[in-house]
Design a protein around this nucleic acid. Structure first.
Lengths: 243, 243
DNA sequence: CGTCGATGATGAATGCTATTTATTAGTGAC
DNA sequence: GTCACTAATAAATAGCATTCATCATCGACG
């Protein structure tokens, strides 16, 4: 006769929503700690207080569980950003805000960001997924900013807004890979300024800083001043410059 | 008594280099076709004409085999590019060349590029690997171009060369992800022009197109010329501008 | 207040793969 | 011609996602 305590198995019934959120919370922890491949369903089950088979009652497989976990995170993030963004004015400030908040998300949740970049986005069914749509909404804010900037005359009319999106988000990802691998740290504010300025001004000399253009202006201004003085003319107003 | 033909197992001895290159060629094909996770050692072994165990005689594990395959590809690529690059002059042209050749590599070998981006680079031991060094050499050409451009006065002196590197390579990756997932196609030449121009000029109006700065300069140059002529002064040298 | 059916939950079984290991077959030195 | 050494093999091992046959619990209904 087998022992009663071994036969009588413990069962803990809960409402489905609760089970699902328990499993997702446990899964999030394990995926964050171990990454997708090294995360064990067994481990997730133990932490969620269920048995392996129960996870498959709610999620088709390990990958779907991952997708749901990342979706949940992403949706929360979108909600938090959206309201703040509405208040920012001016194309430079808006770009800077988007860059900064994105850097902050990466800085706060490196492991989840990694899962998004490494596991979710490369999947062949990514396009067509809910996360694709969420990410599209997220990055399209920048596209809209660029379009508005062009319409307002702030930004060069021939720029492709979608190319700017790839430039900005691609740059951010590339620059944060070392951090995502766990090497070193970065300052979101500082990096946001640097990226925004570089994207805004570009590489080429010309618009503002010391440059051939600047020296031409300096030469002209000096010459004009001398000549104006010689002719006894009162100088016109000078236009203000950003600091 | 067991049948002789079944007992007598076939053994095919070959020089190690040959075995290694056979295995690597087979592995490359399978990784390219199936991706890292879905590639089976069994499959690789069959195509290489060996048995599974033999692969482990030369490669510690599946991942090392992957790394060796990608390294081999990358080294070949570096050799091919290097000589051509040496002939290109001018910062815009050099940047355009680097962007174009990188886009061409992705376009030619999407699967291998993907393995590099998705499997190799995120690994915790990437920094410190041979591929890291190779990639560093590859991307540092751009850093050197930017430094030289700054020294020559073509590029803004306050730009961070390493940030430009991340901007360019990040943008390329971000923009080619859809293609890497097998969605649609792109034209390397066209994309290279667009990226190079955007990086070079930036977003903001100012350097070349009609802009407040431009019109101020034009006004000053006209006025100065007239006044200088009237005063009988010989104008100073003007710096050349790109067309 | 008790029984029954539906469904949540279980834990053992399955199957697929990377990796290891015990054995066997060539090969070259002596 | 023999022997030791190493390449190569094929079978065994083990880890882990996924499935499945069973069991426990809850609410409805008598």
């Amino acid at each position: 006769m087998p022992p009663r305590t071994a036969l009588k198995r413990q069962v803990n019934r809960l409402p489905p929503e609760r089970r699902i959120s328990d499993i997702m919370a446990a899964a999030k922890d394990v995926f964050v700690e171990k990454g997708y491949n090294d995360a064990l369903i067994t481990d997730i089950a133990v932490r969620a207080g269920v048995v392996e088979g129960s996870i498959y009652r709610f999620f088709a497989n390990k990958r779907e569980l991952l997708v749901k976990v990342v979706e949940h995170w992403f949706e929360e993030m979108l909600r938090d950003d959206a309201e703040q963004f509405a208040a920012v004015r001016g194309s430079w400030n808006q770009i800077r805000f988007i860059v900064y908040t994105h850097l902050t998300s990466i800085h706060r949740d490196p492991a989840l960001s990694r899962l998004m970049f490494q596991e979710i986005r490369p999947a062949p069914d990514y396009r067509g997924s809910h996360l694709f749509e969420l990410n599209r909404a997220y990055t399209n804010r920048l596209v809209d900013v660029v379009k508005a900037g062009i319409a307002a005359g702030d930004l060069r009319p021939e720029t492709s807004p979608s190319l700017v999106r790839d430039l900005v988000f691609g740059c951010i990802e590339h620059r944060t890979w070392a951090f995502l691998r766990g090497e070193g740290d970065f300052d979101p504010a500082e990096m946001a300024d640097a990226i925004t300025n570089l994207v805004h001004h570009g590489l080429a000399v010309g618009s503002e800083a010391a440059s051939p253009m600047e020296s031409v202006v300096a030469r002209l201004e000096t010459a004009t001043a001398r000549l104006e003085a010689a002719a006894g003319i009162v100088p016109a107003k000078s236009s203000p410059r950003r600091g």
